[in-house]
Lab assay of single mutants.
Amino acid sequence: NQASVVANQLIPINTALTLVMMRSEVVTPVGIPAEDIPRLVSMQVNRAVPLGTTLMPDMVRGYA
């Protein structure tokens, strides 16, 4: 089972991601792999991401 990136807090739209906003968790469906967390830092979300939501590739500008 692969860990995915999950929002550690509410992340408002257009917010640049920081390490404290994300955690890794084994979830279904699988989202962005946890090993990509360092790559996600400073990328912006293109929608509001509620606490506990799995980050999907289409939620992060420039990721996919």
Score class of each variant (00 low, 15 high):
Ala48Ile: 13
Pro57Tyr: 11
Val45Asp: 00
Val30Cys: 11
Val5Met: 02
Val41Lys: 06
Gly31Val: 02
Val49Glu: 01
Pro38Val: 13
Thr54Gln: 04
Ala48Leu: 10
Pro38Phe: 13
Ile13His: 13
Ile13Trp: 06
Gly52Val: 02
Thr18Arg: 10
Val6Thr: 11
Gly52Ile: 02
Pro38Lys: 14
Asn14Pro: 00
Thr54Pro: 08
Ser24Asp: 11
Pro12Arg: 11
Gly52Ala: 10
Ala64Arg: 06
Thr28Asn: 11
Arg23Glu: 03
Glu25Tyr: 07
Met43Trp: 11
Ile32Thr: 02
Glu25Cys: 06
Ala7Ser: 11
Thr28Arg: 03
Ile11Met: 04
Val26Asp: 15
Asp36Phe: 08
Ile13Ala: 12
Ile32Lys: 00
Ala3Asp: 10
Arg39Pro: 03
Met59Glu: 03
Thr28Val: 10
Asp58Glu: 07
Thr28Cys: 10
Met59Ser: 05
Thr18Ile: 05
Val6Gln: 05
Asn46Lys: 11
Arg47Glu: 10
Ala34Trp: 09
Gln9Tyr: 14
Val26Cys: 05
Val5Lys: 01
Asp58Cys: 13
Ala48Val: 14
Gly52Gln: 04
Ile13Glu: 15
Ile32Asp: 00
Leu55Ser: 01
Met22Lys: 00
Gln2Glu: 15
Ser4Ile: 01
Glu25Arg: 05
Asn8Tyr: 05
Met59Tyr: 12
Pro33Leu: 12
Glu35His: 12
Ala3Phe: 12
Leu17Ala: 00
Val41Asn: 04
Val45Leu: 11
Gly52Glu: 06
Val30Asn: 06
Arg39Val: 07
Thr18Lys: 06
Gly62Cys: 15
Pro50Leu: 14
Met21Trp: 02
Arg23Thr: 04
Asn8Arg: 09
Asp36Gly: 07
Asp58His: 08
Val26Arg: 03
Asn46Leu: 15
Ala16Pro: 12
Glu35Asn: 10
Gly31Gln: 03
Val45Gly: 01
Ile32Tyr: 02
Val6Pro: 01
Leu40Trp: 02
Val41Arg: 09
Glu35Arg: 05
Val26Leu: 13
Val30Gln: 07
Val41Gly: 03
Leu51Phe: 14
Arg23Cys: 04
Val45Cys: 05
Tyr63Ile: 04
Arg39Ser: 07
Asn1Gln: 14
Met43Tyr: 13
Thr28Ser: 10
Gln9Leu: 14
Gln2Met: 14
Ala48Lys: 07
Pro12Ala: 11
Met56Asp: 05
Asp36His: 09
Ala7Arg: 01
Met56Gly: 05
Ala16Lys: 05
Thr18Ala: 10
Asn14Cys: 06
Val41Leu: 14
Pro33Trp: 13
Thr15Lys: 08
Ser24Ala: 14
Ile13Met: 12
Val30His: 14
Ile13Ser: 14
Met21His: 12
Gln2Arg: 03
Ser4Val: 02
Ala34Tyr: 06
Val45Ser: 06
Gln44Arg: 11
Asn14Leu: 10
Val27Asn: 03
Ala7Val: 14
Ile13Thr: 12
Asn46Cys: 09
Val27Pro: 01
Ile32Asn: 00
Gln44Phe: 14
Gly31Ile: 01
Leu17Tyr: 01
Met56Glu: 08
Asp58Lys: 06
Thr28Leu: 06
Thr53Gly: 06
Pro38Leu: 09
Val30Ile: 10
Met22Ile: 12
Ala16Phe: 14
Thr54Trp: 02
Gly62Pro: 06
Val6Phe: 02
Val6Ala: 03
